[in-house]
Amino acid sequence: MNLFRLLGDLSHLASIFILLHKIQTTRSCRGISFKTQALYVTVFVARYLDLFYRYVSLYNSVMKLFFIASSVYILYLMKYKYRPTNDPSIDTFRIEYLLGPCVLLSLIFNYKFSVTEVLWSFSIFLESVAILPQLFMLQRTGEAETITTHYLAALGVYRALYIPNWIYRYITEDGVVDPIAVTAGLVQTGLYIDFFYVYFTKVLQGQKFELPA
């Protein structure tokens, strides 16, 4: 564990609390992509199967359980409690275009051709693109509630912080590198660049998140 990873994980936690706060206070999941949230459940379940057979640390287990539980809870809120505020007609990204390539990539690139390792790889590849339905929705509507942009910013910061974490680990842990996680992580962080540009130049200056027409 190092500071970058810890702050990254805390940012990830924060993003989930921001999202829950947004849904509960506005009593609405407007502007949130159900597809992206469903992909995150898939990611966490596929990756954290090792909860059943491997113990890393209390921190690790608690975080994994939290990420699974909170992501399932968010789906429940969207699908049942605040269902009328969820508008599937603007959540139109075709996730089969993400799932298919991720299945294929995980079958080719994995650390061992076993069910759990392929699922782990799949979860890494899928996480890297899971935000796309959400960003696509944002692009389509051209605007977002400020709180929703804080959610996305926290998620982006989490991903960005994992990069110095890998550099730090490479230096301090004698050249240790996880090529699958790093490659997918760089792609994932890259997807946030456009968003961050608007976030920093507009939202943090007190303006509404609006994309140019």
């Binding site: 994980d9 990830h12 890393v56 994994k64 990420f67 650390y111 782990w120």
Partner: peptide
Amino acid sequence: PEEEKTHDEL
């Protein structure tokens, strides 16, 4: 048999 990699990151 080769051991499975321990993934210690979240």
